[in-house]
Simulated assay, not measured.
Amino acid sequence: MLLLGAIALVLAFSPSTYTREHRRATARQIYLGAWQVLPWFTALSALISLVIIRIVLVTALSYGLSRFGLEMVVRVLVLELIPLAAAMFVALRAGMAFNAAVLDPLASDRSEQAAWRLRRNLVAEVSGNAFAVLSLAIVSSVLVLVLAYLNVYGLSPWGLDDYTRTVGRVFEPTVAIGFGIKTLLFGLAVAVIPAAAMMEIQRFGRNGESTTQPGAVRLLFVLTVIEAASLAVKYF
């Protein structure tokens, strides 16, 4: 898994990789993994986030802690739940399949030509899935920030000063850098782990383990470790 991730990163940053065929394949994966699902994923996340925002704000108001409600919304939704939800969504929809139409036949074909075709598609798949996680997380986070402002201050522009101070207090430099690193690691995990699992199947066979998606348990474990490490660094 680590070796495949290193190879994918080296190939992604190598100028010789970006031939016309590769650019077309990468654009297709970005379209399928991110752009095609961006509108309805954003709408769904906005609907769920709106419910959570109202619950948090009303609860904080009932306990006389309304000044902390907005900060709690930003910390819980934007910093933690939205990136994790984006990673899980991409993993379930695209990452686990790893272009099943191409790789399922390759799993039983162990010829050199099949291995070459697998390597040819590697960077496109990894880049597309990683970009999907980043784009879904960033767009949804921005929308949640807008919804949080509207729920607290309405359409009035007079709350911008207090709002920007609150959000700025949450997104201090170390937290902002950690948020970016965590989201990037989520994207790399979703992109690399299913691919590594499919390559193991191609090399060693299924060994009767065909009832679950390749790499599902491993991916869930890695995402949990990344999230736990992020929480530990920020709050401990």
Results as ranks from 00 to 15, higher is better:
residue 44 L to V: 03
residue 164 T to P: 01
residue 154 G to A: 11
residue 21 E to R: 15
residue 77 L to D: 04
residue 159 G to P: 11
residue 88 M to N: 08
residue 191 A to I: 05
residue 144 V to S: 07
residue 123 V to D: 09
residue 9 L to C: 10
residue 35 W to G: 15
residue 85 A to P: 00
residue 159 G to E: 05
residue 182 K to N: 07
residue 227 E to A: 15
residue 131 F to Q: 07
residue 127 S to M: 12
residue 28 R to C: 03
residue 53 I to Q: 08
residue 28 R to D: 12
residue 135 S to K: 07
residue 14 S to H: 13
residue 141 S to H: 04
residue 81 L to M: 13
residue 37 V to F: 08
residue 41 F to Y: 14
residue 61 L to P: 06
residue 43 A to M: 02
residue 1 M to R: 11
residue 191 A to F: 00
residue 97 A to D: 08
residue 4 L to M: 12
residue 22 H to G: 04
residue 20 R to Y: 10
residue 236 F to Y: 11
residue 223 L to K: 09
residue 21 E to S: 14
residue 73 V to P: 01
residue 177 I to G: 06
residue 137 A to N: 00
residue 133 V to E: 04
residue 25 A to K: 15
residue 82 I to T: 04
residue 217 V to F: 07
residue 106 L to S: 06
residue 86 A to I: 03
residue 87 A to H: 02
residue 183 T to H: 07
residue 183 T to I: 02
residue 171 F to L: 04
residue 234 K to W: 14
residue 212 T to Q: 09
residue 9 L to T: 07
residue 79 L to Y: 03
residue 108 S to M: 13
residue 225 V to M: 13
residue 89 F to P: 05
residue 125 E to K: 10
residue 188 L to V: 13
residue 110 R to L: 02
residue 114 A to V: 03
residue 168 G to K: 02
residue 45 S to L: 10
residue 88 M to D: 02
residue 182 K to D: 08
residue 22 H to V: 13
residue 40 W to S: 10
residue 12 A to F: 10
residue 125 E to Q: 12
residue 97 A to Q: 01
residue 130 A to V: 03
residue 30 I to M: 13
residue 215 G to E: 06
residue 26 T to D: 11
residue 155 L to W: 12
residue 60 A to I: 00
residue 185 L to D: 03
residue 209 E to V: 03
residue 36 Q to F: 14
residue 165 R to S: 04
residue 156 S to L: 00
residue 218 R to E: 15
residue 173 P to Q: 04
residue 177 I to S: 06
residue 158 W to E: 14
residue 117 R to T: 01
residue 159 G to H: 01
residue 220 L to K: 13
residue 21 E to D: 14
residue 136 L to C: 03
residue 31 Y to E: 15
residue 88 M to Q: 11
residue 149 Y to I: 06
residue 125 E to F: 06
residue 174 T to C: 02
residue 41 F to G: 02
residue 208 G to F: 02
residue 30 I to E: 15
residue 53 I to C: 02
residue 231 L to N: 07
residue 56 V to T: 14
residue 225 V to A: 14
residue 45 S to W: 06
residue 133 V to F: 04
residue 158 W to R: 14
residue 211 T to S: 13
residue 203 R to V: 02
residue 214 P to K: 08
